[in-house]
Design a protein around this nucleic acid. Structure first.
Lengths: 247, 247
DNA sequence: TCTAGTTGTCTAGAACAATAGACAAATTTG
DNA sequence: CAAATTTGTCTATTGTTCTAGACAACTAGA
């Protein structure tokens, strides 16, 4: 839980409506909304941030577009409650799981897949030769219908040539691997970065341009220590936090 | 290592010079620079991103201000090499350490400190009563002179009332704790988020407005399992990655 | 030394962001 | 029902960002 104030800066290269949208989003689960989840009126927000009401309206329009709030003429603007999901990261990490009690419905959709030669990075991660064939899976995960992560995974095509089918049928990497003989696996390592989302990811994750994504680069290995999956997951940073250790 | 293209978007609320600065920064260690670390000429960059040369110049000006590049009239613009630091996160995590071989000089400066009542969040993390006195340390860490993280730490004032002095003398949390009788400690948990940096942090970290910070919220506990330190570290996301497990 | 290539500076205009004010439309409250 | 509150829409104006072009200043290489 972080406390940050709202210093709106002019001429910073970030439009004020965007800064205000970010500030409102950050305060949605905080002191900005009353018990009913109602935001202060536009006029009050405009005074608070020291801007014109139209600028606040532009910010709210962006938030409404990404589904964070909903406005009703005459009534007000209301938060659509979506607490930040916390993903555990550890030896037993499965990104699609470990969310018990945080979201009722979780689903992963296979957007695309293909077979291609491994780049140097992918080959190193999977411990195969550069240029060797790999299967690439592009997927989108949702929690309660809201997109939370967009992942790209690579698998050695020698061992897992049919994983796209298995994934499409089962909707889960864990189950797809089980069908292909990998009954258990562990997280070898995870590297976490953050950046502005690429246009394609923002589109899938229903984020506004300029929004932040947490990037988790990870390798899963089977019980013999052989790398099985190399993945690059992009999480909507304002809907997700990643937790290492603890409960 | 992630590959992302450079789709500059207009009317996105993020000024184009800022988007271009981010894109160039991302490509600084990639295909954008030649063997000598020289960027393509402004004219070529302008064509590549589909903007006017003056817009590229604004982007380069921002990068030069944060020390990422340096321009010389008649010669060109050159990268100032600063590979991304990788911080390990695990049981034995000490943020100021674990950087052997990545940076020659590491230092942590104490910016400010104070004694104050614990908020609910802090009290929960340190397992003390809400409102109980805690010591707050504000620090800035550099690697090779470049600021990489800005941290706020809280300690139970009962046990560690003089930690500010100890930290100021030793320049390290580990050594300060040792002086106060905590000879060893482990990381209980770490939670990682990402957001746009607050103005004050951007200033200390020498980042441009709108830049991203990785926020690591963490608790260290002594060998009896008692929480010792609760900290909130903000890393310059484009200079740092966080690694969990692996080597 | 001359030329080509590159960054630095200036001016002017077009596109966009933000302000200002007025009024309509819907909802809630008295 | 009437009044007050709140969001939705419109017009006009101002200031910032981006574009466009020209030329100066500096560097490297033929």
């Amino acid at each position: 839980m972080t406390v940050q104030s709202d210093p709106i800066e002019r001429q910073s290269g970030i439009a004020m409506w965007r800064q205000i949208a970010d500030a409102i989003r950050a305060g949605l689960s905080g002191p900005l909304v009353d018990a009913d989840g109602k935001l202060p009126p536009e006029k009050a927000l405009a005074e608070r941030f020291g801007v014109n009401r139209h600028t606040v309206r532009a910010a709210i329009k962006a938030l409404a577009h990404e589904g964070a709030v909903q406005s009703h003429q005459g009534r007000g603007t209301f938060v659509r409650r979506k607490p930040r999901l916390t993903y555990p990261i550890g030896q037993r990490t499965r990104f699609s799981e470990g969310l018990e009690g945080q979201a009722a419905n979780r689903s992963t959709e296979l957007l695309d897949h293909g077979r291609e030669p491994a780049t140097a990075d992918i080959a190193r991660a999977l411990d195969i030769a550069t240029g060797a064939p790999v299967i690439r899976l592009e997927s989108l995960s949702r929690a309660d219908g809201v997109p939370v992560s967009r992942a790209t995974s690579w698998f050695d095509a020698e061992r897992f040539g049919t994983i796209a089918d298995a994934f499409a049928r089962s909707g889960s990497v864990t189950r797809a691997l089980a069908q292909l003989g990998v009954t258990d696996y562990v997280r070898a390592w995870t590297r976490i970065e953050a950046r502005h989302g690429a246009a394609d990811d923002l589109d899938h994750l229903r984020l506004s341009p300029g929004a932040i994504v947490l990037v988790a680069e990870a390798v899963n290995a089977d019980m013999d220590g052989r790398p099985v999956q190399y993945s690059l997951s992009r999480f909507a940073a304002d809907r997700v936090s990643l937790q290492v250790g603890g409960d």
